[in-house]
Amino acid sequence: MDLGLQNKKVLVTGASRGIGKGISLLFAKEGAEVSIVARNKEGLEKTAQEHPSLYPIAGDLTDEKERERVFKDHMEQFGTIDILINNVGGSVGTTVDETPLSQFQQAMEWNYFSAVHFSQLALPVMKKQESGAIVNISSIYGRESGGKAPYNNAKSALISFTKALADEVISEGIRVNSVAPGSIIHPEGSWQKRVDEDPEKMKKFVRREIPGGRFGTVEEVANVVVFLASEKASWISGATIQVDGGQSHMNM
C-alpha cells in the first residue's frame, strides 16, 4: 500500500534504538525525511547511517530548552513539520511507597511533558499549513495496572492528552492519535535482557500473559504508527490503538 508519505517532514523522538528506530526507518522507506532525536549521540549517528533520509539531532528531551533547540534544528533543516512522533520515554522507580517524588516527576518529564511540549512547538506550523499528524507512543499500562506506577501514571496522562488535543485541532486539519504497545522485544530492550537472564521464566510469562503466544516486534508497532500518520487513516482521531497480541486486559 502506498501511504502517500513521500517528502513528508517527520520528527521522531527516542529514535536511536528500539521502537523509535523502527518507526523512523519505516518512514524513511516510505519516502519521508526524518529527524531522529535522542540523548545518545553515538546511537543516533549509527542509526542515521542505515538510511540517507535520516537526520540525527542529539538532545536531552527531559530539558525544556533542549527540546526547543531540537525543534529549531529540525525546522532549519526541513523548513516544516508534517508528522510528529512522540516516542521518547522510560520507566523509573519501584513501588509507590518506595519511589521518591523526584522519580514520579522524572517519569512525567520524560514520558509526558516532552510530548506536550513538542506538540505545542509543532502546532503553529501545522495550523498554518492546515494539516499534520501527531502520534504519541503510550503503553497498555497507561490503561490498566501492571509495571511501575510512575511510568503507568505518565502514560495514562499521555493517553488523556491525546484525546484532548485531538478534539481541539481536528477542525484545523490536524489528527492526533496514540499507540499503546504491549511487551515488545528488541535486542537493546528490557524484555530481551529478561529473556537472556531467565528464559524459562519469560516463557511462562508469555504463556500466562500474552494470548498471541509471543512477544511483539518493533516492526509490528511501526506499521501501525506509520499508518496512523498517513492520510489512509484520515478519519481516525483521538484513538489509542493497542498493539499487544491480546495482552491487555482492557476491553474497550
Rank of each mutant, 00 (worst) to 15 (best):
K8D: 00
L11A: 09
G14N: 10
G18R: 09
G22K: 09
I23R: 13
I23W: 07
S24G: 12
K29L: 14
K41I: 03
K46T: 15
T47M: 07
H51K: 03
P56A: 01
I57A: 06
E64M: 08
R67G: 09
R67A: 14
H74C: 02
M75L: 07
M75W: 04
E76G: 06
E76M: 06
I83L: 03
I83E: 00
G93M: 02
T94D: 05
T95K: 09
T99R: 10
P100E: 08
E109R: 03
S114V: 03
H117W: 09
S119R: 01
V125E: 15
K127C: 07
V135M: 10
K148D: 10
A149I: 00
P150W: 07
T162E: 03
E168K: 14
N177I: 04
S178C: 04
P181H: 03
P181Y: 04
S183P: 09
I184G: 07
I184D: 14
G189P: 00
V195G: 00
P199R: 00
K201P: 04
M202E: 02
K203I: 08
F205W: 14
R207M: 01
R207H: 02
I210V: 12
G212H: 13
R214W: 05
E219Y: 11
V221I: 10
E231S: 10
S234R: 13
W235C: 01
S237A: 14
G246A: 10
